[in-house]
Design a protein around this nucleic acid. Structure first.
Lengths: 157, 157
DNA sequence: CTGTAAAAGTCAAGTGTGTTGACCTATAAT
DNA sequence: ATTATAGGTCAACACACTTGACTTTTACAG
């Protein structure tokens, strides 16, 4: 009487389990490259996330960044300050409202960001090239469905 | 003279950036469900990973689990002990070599594992159903290429 | 002008998840 | 008997987070 609702085809379950594992291992492999570069600079994963989103949204406010990253203000504070001290991120008051800081990558920050995300872009480019154009398109579709509605993610297609 | 090697088509770069973000947000959304269930039991992400891999590989040794999870023995120790104390994981000496422990889920452990991974399987099942059969197949292909060679991942197709 | 609210920054304490190093027991293999 | 392997545990530490409390600066509405 235990299994009544969960009567899923065991073959289908194996296929879905493979999908769960792919999610886990692909993500792990995906972040391994940048992590090695960051380590050499004494930086961590947070710093890459900050650099990436500031790079993609120049002039973003601290609150805007907070919303995308979905972390607390205090969690962002220390690493963001560190990036500013290292002259990788620039912060200045907005013209219209001087309470909000507009965040931008410095030239050096943009270079580091390019080397971090560049690794990932080249890897994805190679994978998509090897897998073929339909694979790229459908992969994106599936991933967008998994991600669901995310604030800060440009709702593609 | 700075940009010489990295002369990538900016349009292509945007597409690849979208892929990087999808990786980030899809993974986040993917783990959010189980995390809520775990929280109710006072457990965390590690515990799900352990339950999952022990469930998929009944009788696995501690070293085998260590290799799949790619963490230190000490990092595994505490949460694994906790799962044993909660009677979710069973550990007994192997017949052939009494040094190695064979890990298995208890009935209750299997139930919890099913509720955690079941959430993810149902989500993936729905996404694949909505995206279509070719999407599922090609998604798997792309993810396997990203993951690369992983010890413990059944080299599918 | 004044009170309230919003944006940002900071300190403190606590938690979870990982690391290395050191050390122990039990068992197996030579 | 010695050495290697599988496992378990303690201590110290690092990092990424959390919540709570508080401050400063600026904007805005009465």
């Amino acid at each position: 009487m235990a299994n009544k609702v969960n009567s899923i085809d065991p073959l289908r379950e194996s296929e879905l389990n493979a999908a769960l594992e792919l999610m886990h291992f692909a993500y792990r492999s995906f972040t391994a490259g940048p992590d090695r570069i960051l380590e050499g600079r004494g930086l961590q994963r947070v710093h890459h996330r900050i650099l990436y989103f500031v790079g993609r949204h120049p002039g973003i406010s601290v609150n805007g960044l907070l919303a995308i990253l979905a972390v607390s203000k205090q969690a962002l504070n220390a690493p963001l300050r560190q990036l500013q001290e290292m002259r990788l991120v620039d912060s200045r008051s907005a013209a219209g409202d001087r309470r909000v800081r507009e965040l931008r990558l410095t030239h050096e920050g943009a270079q580091l960001e390019a080397s971090l995300s560049g690794l990932q872009r080249r890897e994805m480019d190679k994978v998509f090239h090897d897998a073929g154009e339909p694979a790229e398109h459908l992969w994106r579709d599936v991933m967008a469905r998994i991600a669901g509605d995310v604030p800060g993610l440009g709702n593609l297609e």
